[in-house]
Nucleic acid binder design. Sequence first.
DNA 1: TGTACATCAGTGAACGCGCGTTCACTGATGTAC
DNA 2: TGTACATCAGTGAACGCGCGTTCACTGATGTAC
Lengths: 232, 232
Amino acid sequence: MNGCKVTSVIPSSSDPNDPSCIVVRPRNPRGEGGKLRGDILAAATEILETTGSLDSVTLRAVARRVGISAPSIYAHFPDRETMLVAVIDDAFAELIDTLNEAIAPVSDPVERLRVGCRAYLRFAQQRPQPYRVMFMRGGGPDTDTADLGGPDLGAEAFAILVDSIKDCADSGRSSSVDPFADATAVWVAMHGYSILHTGLPGFPWPPADDVFDRIVLRLAGVPADLDTPVES
Amino acid sequence: MNGCKVTSVIPSSSDPNDPSCIVVRPRNPRGEGGKLRGDILAAATEILETTGSLDSVTLRAVARRVGISAPSIYAHFPDRETMLVAVIDDAFAELIDTLNEAIAPVSDPVERLRVGCRAYLRFAQQRPQPYRVMFMRGGGPDTDTADLGGPDLGAEAFAILVDSIKDCADSGRSSSVDPFADATAVWVAMHGYSILHTGLPGFPWPPADDVFDRIVLRLAGVPADLDTPVES
DNA sequence: TGTACATCAGTGAACGCGCGTTCACTGATGTAC
DNA sequence: TGTACATCAGTGAACGCGCGTTCACTGATGTAC
């Protein structure tokens, strides 16, 4: 009853290292070989999320999860490094989409800051491992992963935050005289919260909404009496 | 001229994977076999600092660096995992010593907070890779390194920060009504700064001292006019 | 004083493993004539 | 309409590598008699 159907298209074992469950994936029809690229990236992301380690995202583990042989990946990525870069770039793109979707319908500057920051914190909390890897490329001088991912995409996300604080200052709701520096402070605090929350889940962390009220507003120079839009 | 003396006690190659430089280490005299334990931990820490990755701290790499054979490590650590835990515990103990030494000679509460936070930021900046690993145990559900290191030691360091902010509040220099929550905010910000500084060195980071003035004092509830001791 | 012996601080070869990557190949499917 | 062929989407075996760990061992050194 616990056996593995070899006709399943979806991997039936959640352990990417479990070789007992062989997945047979129907080959893509002609002209649709490119679909495999998406499947590979999805599988790589899932392995990252499951194991929490980029080192676990090996070509063989990805291939097992997709249900193909490892060399098939070379039809879509020249090497493992490029595949990992694509995973991280995807995550960055998703973060930026999330942020833009969150702030798009909001016009009040402080409210925009609030929904933007909350969307950021939520992304980090819901996808902690991709988030972790996005902003920490190994960090070592000679690590393979030292320059993975797109700094440009990170800069785009940061620019959204700077603009948000600038709008607050321009409308008189924030006392910030240096939106870039204050955005840096806000980012640093949100990142620290997100990363430590993931790394030390046993600590009595305040909920993300408290983080916004206690930390972000103070660092963005928004006093408590100006943190809600004026009803009129 | 570029050859490797095989009589050197100190590894002459800085590349832990370079097998061309064989180090001959004189065997410890009787009764001093325990010295090797310290050498192993020092080598492991150096590899971590050089490569920026705990995965690079392999038994073989450590053995190469010390100038012993890999199985010799088993006389001092039952397995690789235990060795890595010892590396992290050592780093924690060093951080706590650094903090205590920094604040010991200072009595003014805000000054204590200042020197303590600066010592923390300096430790993170000078030893970025051990710092990174200390507070981020893999983070994944099934990572080997998921529960490395001493949470007790981390709690001790955090308690120093809470006490510091409490002293500021008790003496009327801080408006904090919840030193634990505010210490959390300060820690989160300092961690975010330290980690991002390491992971994204290309960003125009403010110097650590500005971080204290702009971020820590604000989050600790110390207003600008109370941030220096009263001269008398 | 000499010698047998126990102990200590290690070594060297070997094991099975998973990895990235290369290479020659296969077999279904669409297309040109 | 039939068939030869090109193309596509992969496969399977093999390579050399570094790894953690086990095992039987070695050779210097201190100690008991």
